[in-house]
Design a protein around this nucleic acid. Sequence first.
DNA 1: GTCTATATCCAGATAGAC
DNA 2: GTCTATCTGGATATAGAC
Lengths: 217, 217
Amino acid sequence: MRPGSSHFEKQRLDRREEFLTCSGKIFASKGYAATKISDIAAAAGVSQGLLYRYFTSKEGLFTELIRGSFEKLNQAADGLEKLHLPPKEKILRALGETIASMETSELFPNRVLLIAQTTLSEGIPEETKAIIQAESRKPYEAIARIMEAGQKDGSILAGDPTEMATLFWTTIKGLALHRVAQGTAFKAPDLKLVTRMFFAPSSDPPATRLPQEGGVA
Amino acid sequence: MRPGSSHFEKQRLDRREEFLTCSGKIFASKGYAATKISDIAAAAGVSQGLLYRYFTSKEGLFTELIRGSFEKLNQAADGLEKLHLPPKEKILRALGETIASMETSELFPNRVLLIAQTTLSEGIPEETKAIIQAESRKPYEAIARIMEAGQKDGSILAGDPTEMATLFWTTIKGLALHRVAQGTAFKAPDLKLVTRMFFAPSSDPPATRLPQEGGVA
DNA sequence: GTCTATATCCAGATAGAC
DNA sequence: GTCTATCTGGATATAGAC
């Protein structure tokens, strides 16, 4: 039986994924350096030695986690752009789902924070920095294009699209920070309060809340 | 000569302050755990052993830094509240100064980020957590009171004042995150884009940019 | 008052038992 | 396939020299 495609190989990959998810929560709140391999092992309910059977090192584990997080975030941004909706609705949906998902799950805020923390931290592996360098602009650019399209059809307020994309993401990052800090005590702000920054006040946003995994991600 | 009030004592305190400022930059970008005493020493241009003549431990140094940062932030929030200005002008000035200060200096974003990072991180000393527990709500409450006052006189848009204060701070935190990540490449967003979230669109905010140290802080 | 050298401890990583 | 025991490096903290 070839190892690359066997039934057992899939089990092994699932296990890896499980460890990665586990570690994501911890890395997001503690940061790379403060997170011990033993913390991850304890959260996953296994011995710390076992993790080295699945990952080459702490650095390798982290790099893989970051790579996967960016992939999912970029996919989400791509998917959003390709939706057959007017630009304003895209922004509205992205913000609405993101905010809604923050109350129910930590998954998305963890991912955003992980990326945010990693983007600024200098105490992280070199390989991770390279990934950031390559990937971190894409979500900004996707949102900027949507903003620009919305300005053309008049549904989104005037302003430099790049700056508005920055505001979009800094708002989400700020909220993610708040979410993780507050834990379950977090109460999401009203969507209307947030969207005022981008939309003309005349058009009242309808209650667009789709039940889905993790916001734009 | 009494040691508590001598001329030399002041010199020593200045030196401490210098070390604290130095360490603040590093702690803010790397986080507590990833920051080595030797990093701080190198940045200050002294040997690492010397720091232990000024602070009992890494933990003690950090705790003092956090305490001071909260003190300054709370003072700034208090000062803002006490200004003889209409509520809207207070918010406008706080945001304006903050955004302006971000372009010129890292001092304020570092302080905000330091607090933000510390608020969520679980990999920090116990004593620091206690300070956070006691102090972290004050800036939110101060802004919430200003928001409420502004709603009464009609200059600030309707919405739960607590949520609006949260948005105020999450916006600042998000921008601080962005600022530190971008470094000198950071370009502050136009003030008007941000204030749309809080103010009625009719009243055009005047260009209020006061030259001062560090934003609301 | 500051630096250099050293002790101690802890976390990452490995090896070997079951 | 997983766990326990161990090696090793590096960071905190101390002690002693100048």
